[in-house]
Amino acid sequence: METVFSKHDQPTGFKGLNKEEEEDLIGQAECWKIMLSFTDSVAIKAAVELGIADIIDHHGQPISSQKILGNLADAPSPDISFLLRIMRVLVRRKIFSAQKSETGETLYGITPISKWLLRDSKMSLAPMLLLENHPIHINPTHYVSDVIREGTKNGTPFYRCHGYEQFEYTSLKPDYNRLFNEGMACTARIVSKAVIEGYRHGFNQIESLVDVGGGIGGSLSEIVRAYPHIKAINFDLPHVVATAPKYDGITHVGGDMFVSIPKADAIYMKWILHDWSDEHCVKILKNCRKAIPEKTGKVIIVDHVLQPEGNELFDDTGFAFDMMLLSHNSGGKERNEENWKWLFAETGFPRYNIIKIKALPSIIEAYPI
């Protein structure tokens, strides 16, 4: 006998379905939802480009669509019907709030999500959102199935799409390079804040620190500002550190992490290893091992630890990042704990410790003894 569900038992909203019919209908609905999930990013991107969150925030209270429209920059003939449809989606996704005024007018307000879209805020994800939704960034994803069929002999998805690898391409496209740097800078500020707050005991014990792949030293400067006793080296390619500003307590050193790394009590790497294959990471970590003291040294890695069965706050985002790395980097990937454990065993780090912080990545300490 077929099981018939009552309206209280089934999430579909349809009456009289048996279990097979219900599962089939739910499957169809989920397929549609996943298929069109990119449209949420389309709506958020439009909101960031228009500066809607900033407009509402500057007013200090919920405002109408007409007021939003009236405050748009460079909008000679704005279309309110399009705006209303965008706002309808963003309210449904809780990116903005909506309430009725005494006159029945809809007023839009800021939510905990849209606070992260404020372009005028130091702690903003708006630049990263624009980067992740840029055609140069997204288009390589359409080549993933080709690489699955043929391997990487004809290049990564990014190379197949653009004719260059990602880091080469940024040097050829100034606008994309600017967008890329702004995206990296905004996430660096957010993650660095979480690292500094979540690793107090760790930094207090360090006298000298090398930031491998530290760019122009922004992240390291935040650490040294919070822990001024640390003597720090910002280590990156010579042409990168050549443009780095001066910071108190920081020496800029140019070099190649695949050749050697300056010596210090500890090595710091934030979102470096996930860009590289296991073979590359083994070379980097072996050089780290040579650069730190045998008994007291450590490597501090800020990277994601994938949880295959995880259902915590940032778990899904880790898998999304892995998909982008699959499209953009040759061998780059997010790693689970077993992957990290293998890397450490291969490179002379028999002991490690994972510390969760209030951000997307975790801190992973690796010790030589």
Rank of each mutant, 00 (worst) to 15 (best):
H142L: 15
I55D: 07
E105I: 13
N154V: 01
P238R: 01
T111S: 03
H58I: 14
Y247D: 05
Y367D: 05
I86F: 11
S101V: 02
A264E: 07
F96M: 04
I272W: 09
E338T: 10
F167I: 07
F167L: 11
I113H: 00
A244M: 05
P350Q: 06
I44F: 00
E197I: 08
V282T: 08
S81K: 07
V195A: 02
K19Q: 13
C31Q: 11
P78E: 07
N133A: 08
F38S: 08
H58D: 12
A266L: 05
L107E: 01
M269H: 00
G348E: 05
S6D: 07
E337N: 12
Y176L: 12
L285W: 04
A194H: 05
A264V: 12
L125F: 12
D175K: 08
V91L: 04
D120P: 04
K193D: 09
Y199N: 13
L172Q: 08
E21I: 02
E21K: 09
D315S: 08
E49V: 11
G348L: 08
F5W: 11
H58P: 00
C281E: 10
E49M: 15
R85P: 00
L72G: 03
F96N: 01
D40Y: 15
D248W: 06
I136E: 15
A244V: 02
S64L: 05
R351F: 07
I284W: 05
T141V: 13
E346C: 15
V253T: 10
Y268T: 09
F344C: 03
M1G: 13
L36Q: 12
V299G: 06
K286T: 13
V241N: 04
E365A: 06
L325I: 01
I190G: 04
L118I: 02
R351T: 13
V305H: 01
L179S: 00
